[in-house]
Design a protein around this nucleic acid. Sequence first.
DNA 1: AGTGATAGTTATAAGTTCTAACTATCGCGA
DNA 2: TCGCGATAGTTAGAACTTATAACTATCACT
Lengths: 214, 214
Amino acid sequence: MTDPGHSPRERYRTQVRADIKRHAWEQIATAGVSALSLNAIAKLVGMSGPALYRYFASRDDLITELIRDAYRSLADTVAAAAKDGADLSGLAWVIRDWARADPQRYFLIFGTPVPGYHAPDDTTAIAAEVMAVLLDAGELLPAGEPATPLETHLDAHRAWIYDHPATGSAIRRALTFWTRLHGILSLDLAGQFANMDLDLDLLIAEEIDALRKH
Amino acid sequence: MTDPGHSPRERYRTQVRADIKRHAWEQIATAGVSALSLNAIAKLVGMSGPALYRYFASRDDLITELIRDAYRSLADTVAAAAKDGADLSGLAWVIRDWARADPQRYFLIFGTPVPGYHAPDDTTAIAAEVMAVLLDAGELLPAGEPATPLETHLDAHRAWIYDHPATGSAIRRALTFWTRLHGILSLDLAGQFANMDLDLDLLIAEEIDALRKH
DNA sequence: AGTGATAGTTATAAGTTCTAACTATCGCGA
DNA sequence: TCGCGATAGTTAGAACTTATAACTATCACT
């Protein structure tokens, strides 16, 4: 048989792939994904241009893998926080920190979409992991008296949360947590709050706190 | 004197510039800003490659002008709605429609930032126009009893709204209107709600409605 | 030790932005 | 109406990019 999984060739290959990705992340962090150059990366890892195509079929292929890793990193971070007992507030701070650690990584997932590009299916599965954590956190809060129209709607269209038993109220809170936090984070990371001297944590805190009350 | 402003040369020049921008917008709408090719545009308007540099100093220069136009379009749209008496809800629908009309135009302003790129100063002035409208709309709502910590903070750090006399409560509502709506719109336009069968208008309505109550 | 898969090489094609150098055209003033 | 100067366009080319083709060296396993 060839390569049971840990042959020298295989180990070398995964090491070089990791090296390539490491340099790719550095480029993305400092100049954005549009400035990512396969040629430049190849030279940085010590090989010449086309050799890199032995490891990634194309530029899009490499970026897709980076997107996958970014999703994985976010899901793991959120899951770890949940395991440590974080509520919605705690999750908000964890996600804020994760986004700030590498804004371009955040935008790789949630930023400007490229028309025609479709994220691989497994990334939506990872996104569902994150959503499940948010749904769990949302369920810990008491639901309001009469369900709102949105809650009724979400309760009826629940296919995307798979078999999670969350109530309409919990789904609404999880969804709203997501949209509110993303709104704040993406505008902040994009520099739209520059020169506003805004206390972002105060804004996040009050927005998430409002979710607790409604 | 030369060119009082309406010489034949000048008129031809502005017409060609508009032509170039028109094709640029088409490219951006269908393939995103990263796929914008000066060469392709030049051929579409009937000139060969480098001739386009008579009209725009560089690719970045053209994009910057498109960003400026996008800001201008948004500000005009919002201002027109306000003149027609739109409240925060009405403004939300107008902005939603404006974003949907050309998602890539929306992302050109609010999408993934390019590290190192600084928007020209006049765009922040246009953004202030939009903010002024939101502040006006926020002032029409009654303020809650004790000001929240965020409202107190915003009241103290009000340099960015220039001389607008809005209260801390109004600033908070305008800011929150912006972050909430952007969170929803950007995730939707980016396709993050795909296959969720989500009634976006219901989500927007409840989020903006919650602002009225707090 | 030999051999076949793998990893690297260089050359090349077809793009891109953008500069340089040159030419043709257009419009204004005399 | 003629001429001249500013403007608009051209082609050539430099320095990049992604990506493929063809070839060679290396490495690990039988």
